[in-house]
Amino acid sequence: MSEKIAESRGGRQKPPAVIELTDVHKWYGNFHALKNIDLTVRKGERIVVCGPSGSGKSTLIRCINRLEVHQRGSIHVNGVLLTNQTKNIKEVRQEVGMCFQQFNLFSHMTILENLTLAPILVRKMPANDAVDLAMSYLKRVNIADQHDKYPGQLSGGQQQRVAIARSLCMAPKVMLFDEPTSALDPEMIKEVLEVMVDLVNEGMTMICVTHEMGFAKSVADRVVFMDMGEIVEENTPDEFFDNPQVDRTQSFLNQILSH
């Protein structure tokens, strides 16, 4: 009782949960890829997921927008339970934006067409409005002058920024990033991370799988460490990097922070 009073007086209401994974398991055939995943992401939170290769990080976030199918447990996105129903999946995918390691821009369309395609076809936006929307996001990621080029004519960093803008055009509630800078050379990593930091400063809820520990330290609310399909440890960046609780986390940190 007293806690409730304390909460309503001066304490803060917790923001609503945007993504809830409860006891999620996934198998690829006989291989148990995700085990006992329990994760809650609230509005405005920034989660960084890290871990060794094959730990299930990408599988985890791909389950959220149904690019992978989980076999046990439940996933709620924005209150909507993720099931096999097409309508359901479509609803979820419109609220969740995703950026891939390989950018996956549509190479036969110009940058502008890449961005306006989904708003026009999925949100049924009129073409002119879609173009204005696209140009505004291209300006935000500093690439407006390239709008009539083709993806093949841009550098990796530029392509990834376009990919981010393309996801933003659908006004998602959550952005998922699957190792967005892993395919970029070092000078381009910075320009993409700057865009992501801007997004974060505007309050975007974000789950980012990355190896960029600097980004995690400066931006994340929570760092989630995964290994062998399980969440091993989950903590604030300060606690995570300076005071890891689990031995596996410690050995991982020793490896990545030593160079």
């Binding site: 927008n65 149904r66 690019l67 479509k90 995918r93 419109q94 969740v96 934006g97 995703m98 891939f100 390989q102 996956n104 821009l105 549509f106 190479s107 036969h108 395609l117 989904a118 076809l121 999925v122 990919a163 393309r166 996801s167 659908m170």
Partner: peptide, 24 residues
């Protein structure tokens, strides 16, 4: 990845096939 990007944007199966996959 092309199909995945189309899926992630919420494009339906036929639309993504006709506009993204088939032209390429």
């Amino acid at each position: 990845g092309q199909q995945e990007a189309a899926d992630a944007l919420g494009l339906s199966g036929w639309k993504s096939t006709a506009l993204i996959i088939l032209p390429q």
